[in-house]
């Protein structure tokens, strides 16, 4: 399959170790103002695996995901408690700058959001620009090709690198956003319902991309699509929030077990589409 031909080796000039790492959340709780929306979340996201977060809307999946790369704190009233580690290092208490954390833990949003003022190629390398990393012209061109290949987009846009990012179709834009996130060589990639705005064909392409990426990157994905969770993930966590109460994880484990043999009746109800 052509999507797998990511043979060009590429090394971003960087001092930190970019080997794949695990993430772990311990006793995480989140607030918006005084409203507690997430309580007592414990979750391991092992290296090289895809962890899917499932659960009905409003139970705090996005909130949890955003704590993993410190996007949560951008909301003025937001606060949190607990510990989140990236490769054993506490991302909130170590001296790691927040920008470095976010570079290591990349994010793809629900709605494709390529930078409209940049071309396709510029979008891919925008992360380097934003980090102030200088690269030579040939390095840059290699990086563009390498990342677009990994995102499974190279063949479609090879001739359109100078077009504005928004000239692509929705599915292509989303893969462009994935390529953009890959360009800064993250160790973890967070995806918040990356396919919910896309058609089935584009969705399949992105799932293929996820499959190839997981060899090198730890992936956490939020999805409302049960089949998707089963197709792409090895581990799964089911979130739930009772009315007026903070969300929490009902149970988590291998995707296989959560879907075929869950402990909690609410989980089996949800994964079989009986509520939510």
């Amino acid at each position: 399959m052509t999507l797998l031909d990511n043979t060009t080796e590429f090394v971003v000039p960087s001092t930190i170790d970019r080997s794949r790492v695990e993430m772990e959340a311990r006793n995480v709780a989140c607030w918006f103002g005084d409203n507690k929306v997430l309580a007592d979340v414990n979750l391991q996201m092992p290296a090289g695996e895809v962890t899917a977060l499932i659960g009905p809307s409003g139970c705090g999946k996005s909130t949890f995901l955003r704590t993993l790369n410190r996007m949560h704190e951008l909301v003025p009233s937001a606060s949190l408690a607990g510990t989140i580690t990236l490769g054993g290092e506490d991302i909130y208490r170590s001296r790691l700058p927040v920008t470095e954390t976010r570079r290591r833990v990349g994010m793809v949003f629900q709605k494709p959001n390529p930078f409209p003022a940049m071309t396709v190629a510029e979008n891919v390398v925008s992360g380097l620009k934003l980090a102030g990393v200088k690269v030579t012209r040939s390095e840059r061109q290699d990086l563009v090709e390498h990342c677009l290949r990994r995102a499974g987009l190279w063949q479609e846009v090879e001739k359109r690198l100078g077009d504005p990012g928004r000239a692509l179709s929705g599915g292509q834009q989303q893969r462009l956003c994935i390529a953009r996130a890959l360009a800064v060589e993250p160790q973890v990639l967070l995806m918040d319902e990356p396919c919910s705005a896309l058609d089935p064909t584009s969705t399949r392409r992105i799932e293929e991309t996820i499959a190839t990426l997981q060899e090198t990157i730890t992936i956490v994905i939020v999805t409302h699509n049960m089949q998707q969770a089963q197709r792409v993930s090895q581990r799964c966590a089911f979130f739930l929030a009772a009315y007026g109460e903070p969300g929490h994880i009902v149970e988590s484990g291998t995707t296989e077990r959560i879907f075929n043999n869950p402990d909690d009746p609410r989980t089996s109800d949800y994964v079989q589409g009986r509520f939510g």
Partner: peptide, 13 residues
């Protein structure tokens, strides 16, 4: 009473 993290943003120069 959970202790909320005192988030510190070290901004670059």
């Amino acid at each position: 009473v959970e202790e909320r993290i005192d988030i510190q943003v070290r901004r670059s120069t």
